[in-house]
Design a protein around this nucleic acid. Sequence first.
DNA 1: CCAGACGTTGTT
DNA 2: GTCTGG
DNA 3: CCAGACGTTGTT
DNA 4: GTCTGG
Length: 231
Amino acid sequence: MCGRFTLRTPTERWARQFALEELPLFAPRYNMAPTQRLPVVRLSANGTRACDELRWGFIPSWSAGEKHRAPLINARAESIAEKPSFRDAVHFRRCLIPADGFYEWEQDGRQRQPYFVSRRDDRPFAFAGLWESWRPPEGGPAIETFVIVTTEANALLSRFHDGRMPVMLQGDHGERWLFEESRHAEDLIPLLGAYPEEELTCVRVSARVNSVRHDDPSCLEAPLRTQTLFD
DNA sequence: CCAGACGTTGTT
DNA sequence: GTCTGG
DNA sequence: CCAGACGTTGTT
DNA sequence: GTCTGG
């Protein structure tokens, strides 16, 4: 699964990689968390790419309210085309989520030990995402939200509790995820596989990342206790 | 027909 | 234990 | 995802 | 909104 991630790369670098015409300006992020407004790349009305800030935690358009519900931060690639919450979005509201790493946790006694996963070359990449617009019943402006698609974990990630990992779109899959026509959207589901583990690295990091208050380079420091690096 | 769910994950 | 907030 | 609160009353 | 269960 994926419940926290990073986007440390300077904006101009990842904006170029995502072929954005307008240059957004975002501070480097080391601890992006559910409920926060985070940058998402999607198609605008005129068919070009746009980068907008959407809230992480998908609220279906028919939802009675945003409270009293577990946040939908991940969606299983295997079922998004059928699930009532997501299938419209698969056709009409796909998006890319710029990132350059993500965290996984292991229960270590009574501690929650975080690990950081990123590309060996440390370049940014795109998570596959879906977005939705929800209008509060009591009125007020619509809230736009997104969810990150997950898939079965590769060998590197399968050691973590649930055997899932976020979909990192490789090669031209990001372009296809963004631009494929609605009627061919279901052809994209087979592209949502695990990223090759040989291109990734996974290291133990400081438990400072556990708290969303910490959003700085200290999140990636090595933990104080005996450290095992495996990658 | 209406009421109620609609998601992800892991749990002994 | 369960829910909310970030 | 994890951290932190979780209640009422009345009040320093 | 749309599907399932009764």
